Amino acid sequence: MGIALLIAGMLLCFVGARSLVLAAACAGFGLGSGLAAALGGGAVTAVLVGVGGGVGAVLLVRLALGTGPFVVGALAGGVVAASAYRTLPPTLSWPAPLVVLVVLAVAVLSGAAVHFLRAPLLRAVTALAGAGLIIRGVVEAGPAFLGFLRSPATWVESLVALAALLALAWVGFTTQRQRVDKT
């Protein structure tokens, strides 16, 4: 699971807006597996739900020609919201229905914003979502001492997790911007 998240996150973070179909597949996988894991599903369930989310996202982008940026923005926004929720310390635990509602609300708002503002925001949202998936992948496939990135116990650990997420997203955003500037 960790390696799949790492690969999807790297593609989403560093390629992102360049390919809507690839971004949709990666974001759909990340959102599906993230929600399944956040709601207590095991690794197999998270992978299966993630694959279903990726396939569904690709189908949505392919079938809804004019709404591709909205779909990718919404999926990536959902991943960003889920990643941000995972950086909170356990003292701020929310009930599962509220988590799902907030993730869906952020997803819809992100999708609408990307639909209207297009390229710069799409690069930012895919970089943030990819960074969240990379961190989840590193935590699951990497050394145990990085476990605090998954569930920080203190505010300091939360701030470190958030700083890592934002720094990685910034690198992804600038990489995507540089690729656009070169073409």
Score class of each variant (00 low, 15 high):
14 F>M: 08
15 V>H: 13
19 S>K: 04
19 S>W: 01
20 L>Y: 10
20 L>Q: 13
22 L>V: 10
22 L>P: 03
22 L>Y: 00
23 A>L: 09
23 A>N: 06
25 A>C: 08
26 C>A: 14
26 C>R: 11
27 A>W: 01
27 A>K: 00
27 A>T: 00
29 F>G: 03
29 F>D: 08
29 F>I: 08
30 G>F: 03
32 G>E: 08
32 G>T: 06
32 G>K: 00
33 S>H: 10
36 A>P: 08
37 A>W: 03
38 A>T: 14
38 A>G: 15
39 L>D: 12
39 L>W: 14
40 G>W: 05
40 G>S: 07
40 G>D: 13
43 A>E: 15
44 V>C: 11
45 T>D: 12
45 T>G: 01
45 T>W: 09
46 A>K: 01
46 A>W: 00
46 A>L: 03
47 V>I: 09
50 G>P: 06
50 G>R: 04
51 V>S: 08
51 V>T: 12
51 V>C: 10
51 V>E: 11
54 G>E: 05
54 G>W: 00
55 V>M: 02
56 G>V: 01
57 A>H: 09
57 A>E: 07
57 A>W: 04
58 V>M: 11
58 V>K: 12
58 V>W: 04
60 L>C: 05
60 L>S: 11
60 L>H: 03
61 V>C: 10
63 L>I: 13
64 A>L: 12
65 L>C: 14
65 L>V: 15
65 L>I: 14
67 T>S: 15
67 T>Q: 15
68 G>R: 01
69 P>W: 01
70 F>E: 03
71 V>T: 14
71 V>L: 14
72 V>H: 03
73 G>W: 02
73 G>T: 03
76 A>G: 11
77 G>C: 06
77 G>N: 05
78 G>Q: 09
78 G>E: 12
79 V>T: 11
82 A>W: 13
84 A>H: 09
84 A>Y: 09
85 Y>A: 15
86 R>W: 14
86 R>V: 14
86 R>E: 15
88 L>G: 05
88 L>P: 02
89 P>Y: 00
91 T>F: 10
92 L>F: 15
93 S>W: 12
94 W>E: 13
97 P>C: 09
99 V>H: 06
99 V>N: 05
100 V>W: 00
101 L>P: 02
101 L>M: 08
102 V>N: 06
102 V>E: 12
103 V>F: 08
105 A>Q: 09
105 A>F: 10
106 V>C: 05
107 A>W: 02
107 A>E: 01
109 L>R: 13
109 L>W: 15
110 S>V: 02
110 S>F: 00
110 S>A: 00
111 G>C: 00
111 G>I: 00
111 G>A: 04
111 G>R: 01
111 G>N: 10
112 A>D: 08
113 A>N: 07
114 V>D: 02
115 H>I: 15
116 F>Y: 11
117 L>M: 12
117 L>F: 12
120 P>T: 01
121 L>Y: 02
122 L>Y: 09
122 L>P: 11
123 R>A: 11
123 R>F: 07
124 A>K: 05
124 A>F: 12
125 V>K: 07
127 A>P: 07
130 G>T: 04
130 G>M: 06
130 G>Y: 04
131 A>F: 05
131 A>Q: 06
132 G>E: 07
133 L>P: 13
133 L>C: 13
134 I>T: 09
135 I>T: 14
135 I>R: 14
136 R>L: 14
138 V>N: 01
